[in-house]
Computed example of a mutant assay.
Amino acid sequence: MSKVGETTLILDLSALEHNYNYLRSQINPGTKFLGVVKAFAYGSDIVTIAKKLKQLGADYLAVAYVSEGVLLREAGIKTPILVLHPLASNFDDLIAYCLEPSIYSRNILNQFLEVAKAKQQSDYPVHIKFNTGLNRLGFSENDTDFIAEETKDNGSIKIVSCFSHLAASEDINERDFSLKQINSFKNLSNKLIDALGYAPMRHMLNTSGIINYPEAQFEMVRSGIGLYGYGNQAEVDAQLKPVATLKTIISQIHQIDANESVGYNRAFKSDGAIKSATLPIGHADGIGRQYGKGKGFVTINGKKAPILGNVCMDMIMVDVTGIDCQEGDEVIVFGPKKSAERFASSANTISYEILTAISQRVKREVINQ
C-alpha cells in the first residue's frame, strides 16, 4: 500500500475476491449468492463493491433502502437488487429503477399492489419476508393464506422469493433457537408454496448461517459482513481478509509535562512527562467519543498508541511516548494486522458499527482492482 498523505480508507478488492470465493466454497455449486451492499457497502464504497461482486458472479445484491438501489442503477449496475426495507413513499422510484421490494406486512403488500396496478405492472418481482423469531420485520405464520390470496391471481406482482433472518446464527449457545427458526421457515415456506402453486426461491442464511447451518442454504444465501472480512467467530475470521484499512498521519507532536492536560474538558491529565501526537481524524470521521480516554488505540510504526482524552470532531490525540515517530508518519487505525473487530471491541462494540460509521468525507482509495 502506498503511504497516505491524509486520512484514507483503502479498499482491497483482492481481499473481497478472496472472501467471496471462501464463502462460495461453503455452499453447493447450484446455490445462488446474494451480496449485501447496504450502508455504503458496510462503510466502504457501494458502487465499487457492487461492481466487483457482479464481476465475481453474485446473483443478487441487497440494499436497505430504495435510494441505495437507485444509486447502483444510476452507476449502470443491472444485477437484481433486493430492497430489504422499502417504504411506501419510495415505491414509484423503486419501480422506475427496477428494484425488488421485500414485502414484510399486510399494509406494505396492499400499498405495493395498489402502486403496481396503477403503473400497469405485470409479474413485478417481490420477496416475501417472514418473521421467525428476530421480531424486527416480517409476516407471521398466520399470514400465508392472506399472501397467497392477494397475490396468486393478481397479475401485477410475482413472488420470486420468500426469506427470513436468523437472530443468533453465530452463537453456539443459541443453536436450539436457530434450529427452531429454520424449522419454522421450512414450514412457512412450504405452506406458502402449496398455496401459490409454484415455488419461489428461499433464503435464510447470513454469513454465520452459511458457516454454521449449511443444511439450511435452500436456493440462495445472503452474505454481508463476511464479504468485508469479518465472520463473527475467530475461526472464521482466520479464513477471511479485511477489505478496508483506515490510515491517517501524524499532524503534530507535543511534549506534555506532568500535570498538563490534553484535549477538551481536560479529560486526560498527565502524571508525568509524555509525548502526544495529534491525528487528523475524529468523531466526524466515525471515531466516536466512546473510543477516547485510553479505550481505543492506533498503531504507529508497529507500536500501540492509546487515544488520550476525549475524541474531537476532527482530531484525536494519542500517546506516542517511547515510539520512534515524527510528524507525517503513517498511522493505522484498523486493517489486516489490527482488525476493525479488535478496534471496536476496545469500546465494547462490534466491527459493523465502526465500519459503517466511517464518514463519506474520508477519502477512499481502491487497490488490486
Rank of each mutant, 00 (worst) to 15 (best):
H283R: 13
N142I: 02
I250S: 03
Y352Q: 14
A234V: 13
L34I: 11
V37L: 11
I274A: 09
P336D: 13
A199M: 07
P101S: 09
D194Q: 14
V70W: 06
L11C: 06
T7W: 08
E74I: 01
R222L: 12
A199C: 12
T144W: 00
V126Y: 03
G209K: 10
P336N: 12
N368S: 10
S189H: 13
A15I: 03
R136T: 05
N187R: 14
D45C: 03
E74R: 14
Y22E: 12
G272A: 15
F268Q: 02
L87N: 13
S339E: 02
R73A: 08
V362D: 10
S161R: 05
L84A: 13
K32A: 14
S178A: 14
L94P: 03
G322P: 09
N259Q: 14
N368I: 03
K275A: 08
D145G: 00
V366K: 05
S178G: 00
Y213C: 04
M317L: 01
A64N: 12
G197Y: 09
L82G: 00
K78W: 00
Y352C: 00
F130Q: 04
K51A: 09
G69T: 04
E235T: 07
V47M: 04
Y22I: 12
R342D: 14
D59N: 15
I323G: 02
G229A: 09
I182V: 14
E365N: 07
L134F: 08
D285T: 04
E365Q: 12
A39Q: 10
C325E: 07
A62Q: 05
K269S: 11
R266W: 00
L82K: 11
K363Y: 10
N28R: 15
M220Y: 05
I77A: 08
G292K: 06
R342W: 12
L188P: 02
I358T: 11
K78N: 13
D143W: 01
K158G: 01
R136V: 04
T299S: 07
E353W: 01
P336H: 04
I350C: 06
E17I: 00
I210Y: 02
A340I: 02
M315V: 05
F91I: 06
S102A: 15
N348L: 11
V311Y: 09
E114N: 11
V311A: 08
L61T: 07
V318D: 02
A168N: 14
I147C: 02
T349H: 07
F112C: 06
E365P: 00
L13T: 08
T349P: 04
L72Q: 10
T349M: 11
G133Y: 03
G43V: 06
H254Q: 13
N107L: 13
A15D: 02
D145N: 08
S105I: 08
P200Y: 05
I332T: 15
I27K: 09
T207N: 09
T31S: 11
N348F: 13
I358A: 04
E114L: 11
E74K: 15
R202C: 13
S169T: 08
L87V: 12
A277S: 04
P80W: 06
Q181P: 09
A344P: 01
V320E: 03
I354A: 02
I10R: 13
K158V: 06
L72W: 08
K338G: 00
F268C: 03
A216V: 08
Y264P: 01
D176P: 00
L188D: 05
S161T: 09
H203F: 15
A284K: 15
S105F: 05
